[in-house]
Simulated assay, not measured.
Amino acid sequence: MKITTMTAAGVAAALLLPFSGAAPAAASGTATQHGHTIQVEGHGLYVGSVTARSAPSHRPWSYARLVLEQRGGRVTPVRTWTPADHNGFSPETDVTTWHLGRSYPDGSRLCVEWRHRSGRACMIIHR
């Protein structure tokens, strides 16, 4: 049995997840979809950093990228394919962190993709 702790933002994200396809990230939040996890740190529309995790590890081919899905369906790469950092993390988990330090349009979705794996994990950026 796996026990997971969640913050109030995480609980709200989990409740909205089945309806929206992405968890909201009003300040900071975490969502897991398709076996991938996205963690957004920031406040309002400002995103300080994004961390992507995926398990099991696919070393040495572990590369993730960050994309922005805007209203209307337009997808724009935010960060290109980046190798996973395995230093200090579980050998079974791939981890990549990007420091963004900028704001995004209200209603945008930041999504992480992993090379050679299907699906995306997304967070909705809103006020």
Results as ranks from 00 to 15, higher is better:
L110K: 00
Q70V: 07
G48H: 05
A31Q: 10
V50A: 10
L66A: 02
R115T: 12
R59P: 03
P77D: 09
D94T: 03
A55N: 06
Y104H: 09
V75G: 07
T37L: 03
R74G: 02
G107D: 00
I38S: 05
L15G: 10
V40D: 02
W61H: 12
G42P: 09
V40N: 02
L100P: 06
P77H: 06
G44L: 15
S54P: 08
S90H: 06
S28F: 08
Y46G: 02
A121E: 07
R120H: 04
V78A: 00
R120M: 04
W81D: 15
P56F: 00
G101I: 12
G119I: 09
T97D: 01
A52T: 04
V112K: 12
S57H: 03
R65S: 09
R117I: 05
G73R: 08
A9Q: 04
T82A: 08
A64R: 01
A8N: 14
R117N: 07
I124Q: 07
G73K: 11
G44P: 08
P24M: 10
A9H: 00
A26P: 00
S54W: 12
V78E: 07
H99S: 14
C111A: 04
V47L: 06
L110T: 00
V112M: 12
T37H: 07
V67M: 03
H58T: 13
A27K: 07
C111V: 01
Q39G: 01
G107H: 05
N87F: 13
T30G: 06
E69T: 09
T37M: 08
M6K: 15
L45F: 05
A31L: 13
H116K: 14
P105G: 05
H99Y: 15
A121T: 08
H36E: 09
V47M: 00
G88H: 09
H116F: 15
I3K: 11
A121S: 15
A23I: 08
R71G: 05
H58K: 07
G21M: 03
T30D: 02
V50F: 02
R102H: 08
L17G: 08
L110E: 00
H36C: 05
V50P: 11
G72M: 03
D106T: 07
L15C: 06
R71P: 10
R59M: 10
H34S: 08
H43P: 01
D106H: 13
A22S: 02
A31I: 14
V50R: 06
H43W: 12
A26Q: 03
T51N: 03
L45C: 05
I3E: 12
E69N: 06
A64E: 10
S108T: 01
P91V: 13
C111P: 03
H58I: 09
K2E: 05
I38F: 01
L15N: 12
S62P: 05
S20W: 00
E113C: 04
P56Y: 01
S28G: 15
